[in-house]
Design a protein around this nucleic acid. Structure first.
Length: 564
RNA sequence: UGGGGUGUCGCCAAGUGGUAAGGCAUCGGAUUUUGAUUCCGACAUUCGUAGGUUCGAUCCCUACCACCCCAGCCA
């Protein structure tokens, strides 16, 4: 009997991998599951990795299992410790705990080497002298079988001797490789005698200069999984073709009694987010070419970037949960992510008023010491968030978007001769517009209806409510507004064009805003809703600008059903 | 013209021989000192196409179509 998974959002939607796991648990194939997240430390993690993290760690949590963090550090030329540190931080920040100490594929280099000699000894691997170009020719094509390398029939003794000398550093980089002896005529290219060791004199982040030969992914990954007792090794779809190789290596070693377990590789489709790129190579390019300020630029789809943008771990996890796991191609639009973020922020963040594009308003009948102000809660549904005084003064700022001299149809904000409610304060009426020589509005003169503080005006309804800030009591802050980094839905798949041609020139705008004094004690990463505008976060690093002013990043705007 | 995958509402995504969950979006309507939130309600006679098996098919069979991945000494 399969336990029916509830379909509402309080639990995770069923997916085919969970079905497999539940079955394995039920049949007793496994008493505890162990998954793993195996990043290569050659760049920062992005939103696609976040989905994989949520899946691998999430499944382990849900079924009382474990999830290992294992760095796939088999290509020293590209890997570096900065990435290792960033990856660990990202995973922790998302709220996941890996099993024991972080693991490294390089922890198994010794073992991997022994196994390689075992493969040679059993006539299942050989040293090949072919150049990369020659190898490509011998490999054949998708429709044509490959041909055996002339070195394929070397004796076991010679292969062993050669391989040991490869390890000893007797040959130049790239001079030889060790290949598995499988089938050069296989319709699956991965089985055409894959190379599993190459000579490469590169300094490794963990093993230093100890090795001059390094094992390759296909050989390393499956053995590492098996050594760690991984039960379910989930990866993306492009590795589906590698599964026969994964199983081939594991089976040989397992059958020989050299491996404790036989993990199962299961593939699912990777996440495609619109209007961005998620290839590490391309993200790296954006960083090194200075198109963004770094891997953690708030416009980047990296976990570090999303964090700096103000996205929350719970929001990202909700997003991943909503995306689900399947094998069908899934192109998700950014608003889907943003909705999840907003939803998390909605109930967890205090609200204040901020004016981003100020127009000065003079309240002509304001009387100092007589005109009142209200105490207002930081969240309408959470009194425990506390409150502050929204102190009105004779001169205030409102957002220029909230005034139209000649209102368009349906406009509910301030107009000449019209009334509007100042949030947490009085209803005011605009009596006069002051313009400069160019006809630009520089000031509005409005009058307060003194009988509307905390109560509705008599005899009429005032529908519009706008936010405001005192000219004298508010504080200046730098606010960074972001838009999508690319103007194209799929910037990296437009034929004949480079993805960088679609960089959005307006993806960052920095402005000065006026905010209630209540945010003065904001700390890095403190989040707020600027009422009627959106969610903002105090920048994690430079939360004080050059003049000591606070610096906020726009996380995401409020949903706006008033479209123009 | 090789191999491996995928095709269920605009976007994700369950389901699996018994007559299409859910989320997001959208559209109504209610409440609202945020055009936000919240709340109600609507939203696939149809599951890539065409045949077949069956009392009955999205689920089984056959053929076809579309798209993705694979020819690194990358992962």
């Amino acid at each position: 009997m399969t336990e029916k998974i509830e379909t509402n959002e309080t639990t995770v939607a069923g997916n085919f991998i969970r079905a497999i796991i539940e079955d394995d648990l039920k049949t007793g194939k496994h008493s505890q599951i162990i998954t793993r997240f195996p990043p290569e430390p050659n760049g920062y993690l992005h939103v696609g990795h976040a989905k994989a993290i949520c899946h691998n760690f999430g499944v382990a949590e849900d079924y009382a299992g474990l999830c290992n963090l294992r760095f796939d550090d088999t290509n020293p030329e590209k890997e570096n410790d900065e990435y290792v540190q960033a990856i660990k931080e990202n995973i922790s920040w998302l709220g996941f705990k890996w099993n024991g100490e972080p693991k490294y594929a390089s922890d198994y280099f010794e073992k991997l080497y022994e196994f390689a000699e075992w493969f040679i000894s059993h006539d299942l691997a050989y040293v090949d002298d072919l150049t990369p170009e020659q190898m490509r020719e011998y490999r054949g094509t998708l429709t044509k079988a490959g041909t055996n390398s002339p070195y394929r029939e070397r004796s076991i003794e010679e292969n062993l001797d050669l391989f040991r000398r490869m390890k000893a550093g007797e040959f130049a980089d790239g001079a030889k490789v060790l290949r598995l002896k499988i089938d050069m005529a296989s319709p699956n290219m991965n089985l055409r005698d894959p190379a599993i060791y190459r000579i490469k004199r590169a300094h490794h982040i963990r093993t230093g200069d100890k090795w001059v030969i390094y094992p390759m992914y296909d050989y390393t990954h499956c053995i590492s999984d098996a050594l760690e007792g991984i039960t379910h090794s989930c990866c993306s779809l492009e590795f589906e073709d590698h599964r026969p190789l994964y199983d081939w290596v594991v089976d040989k070693l397992f059958t020989a009694g050299l491996l404790p377990a036989r993990p199962r590789q299961i593939e699912f489709s990777r996440l495609e987010l619109g209007y961005t790129v998620t290839s590490k190579r391309k993200l790296n390019q954006l960083v090194t070419e200075g198109i963004v300020s770094g891997w953690d630029d708030p416009r980047m789809p990296t976990i570090a970037g999303m964090r700096r943008r103000g996205y929350t771990p719970d929001g990202i996890r909700l997003f991943a949960k909503r995306c689900g796991i399947s094998k069908s191609p899934n192109h998700v639009d950014v608003p889907f992510l943003e909705t999840a973020i907003r939803e998390d922020l909605e109930n967890n963040v205090p609200r204040v008023m901020a004016v981003l594009k100020p127009i000065k308003v003079t309240l002509t009948n304001y009387i100092d010491g007589e005109t009142g102000s209200r105490e207002a809660g930081f969240h309408p549904n959470h009194p425990e968030f506390g409150s502050r005084l929204c102190e009105l003064t004779k001169e205030i700022y409102i957002d220029s978007d909230d005034f139209q001299e000649i209102p368009e149809k349906g406009f509910q904000r301030l107009t000449l001769g019209g009334e509007v409610r100042l949030r947490h304060s009085y209803v005011i009426k605009c009596d006069e517009i002051i313009k400069d020589a160019d006809g630009k509005i520089i000031e509005l003169r409005c009058s307060i209806d003194s009988n509307t503080l905390g109560k509705n005006p008599e005899g009429r309804k005032v529908k519009g409510v706008i936010h405001w800030v005192s000219c004298t009591k508010s504080v200046k802050a730098t606010v960074r507004l972001y838009e999508r980094l690319f103007t194209e839905q799929a910037p990296d798949s437009v034929e004949g064009r480079d993805f960088k041609e679609f960089i959005n020139p307006h993806s960052l705008e920095t402005i000065t805003a006026y905010i209630e004094p209540a945010i003065l004690n904001a700390k890095p990463e403190d989040r707020f809703q600027f009422e009627r505008v959106g969610y903002f976060v105090a920048d994690r690093y430079d939360y004080h600008g050059p003049d000591g002013e606070l610096v906020f990043n726009k996380t995401v705007g409020l949903k706006d059903t008033w479209k123009k």
